[in-house]
Every structure is written in structure tokens, then in C-alpha cells.
């Protein structure tokens, strides 16, 4: 579903992402880990076509995302690390707008909006303008919008920012559920416990290079402590 081929991004003389390659299959939940400044967000931004790679390619469902962006992005949902939204729209207007840009029919949009709003518990807030939302409520709304059109590839940068424990639980179960239905999930996080709990495969990036890739079982062995130890070794 997602294929990165020698993906590289340079900003002047600084190389933020260096020759990163990976393949993520449908149904996989891929945790992309790494310390601050390692190149996680830059990689994710290249996948979401917010940044143009200096070299390499991003294939979404076999389509080059930078050559045929509109086609490739039909399959993609992206959740940024900071949920900037249209402050003057209501939550419902925002979800409806998202449904139109993904070409959903009216009927399908109505059903899906009801569904995701209930899952992420934003229904009581839908009539209010987004400028009145708290950080956590915004994050819930962005997640609801991301799941709205049933994407084949979900790319999430730090999903837990601002979420309360219940919201976090909802997110985890929803991610597992869409993966079971055949979607691929690519997410970055600093919470190793979250990665341990939901991810099936892990990649670790350090100083712009992918330094580890393997199954979560291989990396973490029996528990979070082992995962922490290995992670610190790999990113030292």
C-alpha cells in the first residue's frame, strides 16, 4: 500500500531524510519511531506530499504520489502533529467539507459523518465553531475526518497529542479495526507503550537514516522495558 524508495530530503546542506526505503502492506500498522529531529515528520510530510523529496519516490497503492498526486491521495488520510483547522467553520461543516473533497456522495457522507462523530465523541460539539474547541477536541475532530472516507492508507503524526485517556483508547481500537478491514497505517509516536500496543511493524530513524526495521515482536521481545532498552541502543 505504501512504498518509499530511497526517499531523501535536503534543506540546503542539511540532510533531513537520507535514503529511506520501506514497504508497508495493507492491514499493517507501522510505527515510525525516532528521537526529536531524526526526520520522522519530514518523512511523513513527503508521504502526504506536503514536502517535495530531493530524491526518491513515494508510491501509494502503486501510484507515484508526487507525479500523480490527485490520484494517489484518493487513498490517503493524513493527520498532522498540530491540528490547524478552519476556525470559523463548525465541526459539522468541516466534516462535510472533507467529505466533498474526497468525492463522497451525500448519502455516504451523512452516514459516515454520523458514524465517526459518534466513535470519536464529537457529536455534541458538531454545531459549534472550531474556534471554540479545546486542543483535545480538535484532535478528535481531525481523527474523525481522517477516518471519514475509509482511507486505504492512514498517515498519522503523533496521534496522542491532546487526547484524554478515553480518546486515546478510542483511537487505538479504531486503528486496529481499520487495519483489520485492510487499511495500512503509518504513524509516528514518542510513546513506546502505544507503539508496543498497536503496531505490528516498526521502523526506527536516527540522524536521518533508517537504522532498524522489523516486527514489533522482534524488537520488543516480552515487554515495553525491552523495547525501551533496544530503542535507546539504536538511537544512541
Amino acid at each position: 500500500m505504501l512504498e518509499l524508495n530511497s526517499l531523501t530530503k535536503r534543506f540546503g546542506s542539511f540532510t533531513a531524510v537520507n535514503d529511506v526505503s520501506m514497504k508497508i502492506k495493507a492491514g499493517e500498522i507501522y510505527g515510525f519511531l525516532g528521537p526529536n529531529g531524526a526526520g520522522k515528520t519530514t518523512t511523513i510530510k513527503m508521504i502526504a506530499t506536503l514536502l517535495k523529496p530531493t530524491a526518491g519516490s513515494v508510491l501509494i497503492n502503486g501510484i507515484d504520489a508526487h507525479k500523480y498526486p490527485e490520484k494517489a491521495k484518493q487513498y490517503l488520510s493524513y493527520v498532522p502533529d498540530q491540528p490547524f483547522l478552519y476556525e470559523k467553520l463548525s465541526g459539522l461543516e468541516f466534516l462535510r467539507f472533507v467529505s466533498t473533497i474526497y468525492g463522497m456522495t451525500e448519502d455516504r457522507a451523512a452516514v459516515s459523518i454520523r458514524e465517526v462523530s459518534e466513535i470519536f465523541e464529537v457529536t455534541p460539539w458538531l454545531g459549534r465553531r472550531i474556534e471554540d474547541y479545546s486542543q483535545g477536541m480538535r484532535q478528535r475532530l481531525v481523527l474523525a475526518a481522517a477516518f471519514l472516507h475509509k482511507p486505504k492508507l492512514l498517515v498519522i503524526d503523533e496521534p496522542m497529542v491532546g487526547l484524554d485517556p478515553k480518546g486515546a483508547e478510542t483511537f487505538k481500537s479504531q486503528v486496529k479495526s481499520v487495519a483489520r478491514e485492510g487499511a495500512a497505517i503509518f504513524m509516528t509516536t514518542h510513546q513506546l507503550s502505544l507503539a508496543r500496543e498497536v503496531c505490528t511493524r516498526v521502523g526506527i530513524i536516527n540522524s536521518s537514516r533508517l537504522v532498524y526495521e522489523g516486527s514489533m515482536q522482534e524488537l520488543s521481545g516480552d515487554g515495553v522495558e525491552e523495547l525501551e532498552k533496544r530503542y535507546l541502543q539504536l538511537t544512541a
Partner: peptide
């Protein structure tokens, strides 16, 4: 200070590709 009431439908009308283009204007 104002609340958006029943402003549920500005992105509903229309269909297909045109609906997407019109929704950009409406937004």
C-alpha cells in the same frame, strides 16, 4: 461571540466532481 446553529448544509448540495469544486468556493 456567536454559535453556529443548524449550519449543517452548506457543503451538501451538488454532486460528483462539481460538488468538490463548489465546496471550495463555499468554504
Amino acid at each position: 461571540e456567536r454559535r453556529v446553529k443548524a449550519l449543517a448544509d452548506p457543503f451538501v448540495q451538488g454532486a460528483g466532481r462539481r460538488r468538490g469544486r463548489i465546496s471550495l468556493l463555499r468554504r
